[in-house]
């Protein structure tokens, strides 16, 4: 058992030693693998940031209910009362036509346009603030019901574009999975091809080992460890690429965030994300090595 473990450790270190001996070639392979892994990882970080942004905006889903012109303020109060009873509604604010007009006049910009009118053209308005946990579908339903009310002129729901953004994010998320799948296949092919060349270069050694009675497992092991190191190296490289990317984006995002007076923080690659990248690299490396080995090692039979 201890001997077995020692042999594995030796194989593992020897495989790393071989990679270190030709640093240029190994680094190139690792860089290609790393970039292939960094792409979906980086996109994933971007989407997560998009989600956080969308989530922040989604909480501001107030909607405005405009009563028909000429409706009494009492009607607005009745409607507000019944809305307040709804379990999805947090708060209802009544803005009377007069208050709205005063607001406009104070803001100044429409002064000229409004003073010429005899009566107030503005309707009474209700601003409905939903509870944060209220599901979007039920809010849309509520808005539709309100629209049918005979005293209501129109309901403006300001969340449509947030929903659109969410739909886009969902689309992009699927796209990333697709890209990740394709790039994983690319990594398998890259590792497989590199190891195929490796096998070709060590053909004499493999033939001699087989002549001396080496089992398939014995011949296979060093190449699997090579695949292991390529995968791990590629995963680490990908993490570095993503971290550098985040560092580059961090400054501008902070400035943008400050301009909008928001407290948006750029989301990094979480620990689980980093583990996924490393694990994905490892698995792809091993699978690529396994393919190369199972395709090419049996083809090598010793001659004398």
């Amino acid at each position: 058992m201890r001997l077995w473990l020692t042999r594995h450790v030796q194989n593992c270190l020897a495989a790393m030693g071989r990679l270190v001996q030709r640093p240029a070639g190994s680094l190139l392979t690792i860089a290609v693998i790393g970039i292939a892994l960094a792409l979906p990882a980086g996109l994933n970080v971007l989407v997560r940031n998009g989600e956080v942004l969308a989530g922040g905006w989604e909480s501001a889903r107030d909607f405005s209910v405009y009563l028909k012109p000429g409706e009494e303020l009492a009607q607005a109060a009745t409607l507000a009362k019944s809305l307040s009873a709804n379990s999805n509604v947090d708060d209802v604010e009544i803005i009377s036509a007069e208050a709205a007009l005063a607001d406009f006049q104070q803001s100044g910009s429409f002064e000229g346009a409004l003073t010429g009118l005899d009566n107030n053209p503005l309707p009474h308005t209700l601003v409905v603030r939903p509870r944060p946990e209220a599901p979007a579908s039920e809010l849309a339903e509520l808005a539709r019901e309100l629209g049918k009310d005979t005293s209501v002129d129109q309901v403006r729901l300001d969340t449509e574009w947030v929903e659109r953004l969410n739909a886009i994010l969902e689309f992009v998320r699927r796209g990333i999975w697709l890209a990740a799948g394709l790039l994983a296949i690319a990594v398998v092919v890259i590792v497989g091809n590199t190891i195929r060349l490796d096998i070709e270069n060590r053909r004499a050694e493999i033939e001699v080992a087989k002549l001396l009675g080496a089992t398939d497992a014995f011949v296979r092991r060093p190449f699997l460890y090579t695949g292991f190191w390529y995968g791990l190296g590629g995963g680490l490289f990908a993490l570095v690429v993503v971290l550098v990317g985040l560092a580059v984006l961090g400054g501008p995002v902070a400035r943008l965030s400050a301009l909008y007076g928001a407290s948006f923080q750029l989301q990094g690659l979480a620990g689980s994300g980093a583990l996924t990248v490393l694990g994905g690299g490892l698995v792809a490396g091993l699978v690529g090595a396994w393919f190369a080995v199972s395709q090419h090692l049996t083809a090598i039979q010793p001659k004398i």
Binding site: A204, E207, V208, L211, L212, G213, A214, T215, F218, I304
Partner: peptide, 18 residues
Amino acid sequence: IPEHRRGLGMVFQDHKLL
């Protein structure tokens, strides 16, 4: 086959050293 070969010593004309 591997086990069979391990019980055998082989010498070659081109010696096949690495």
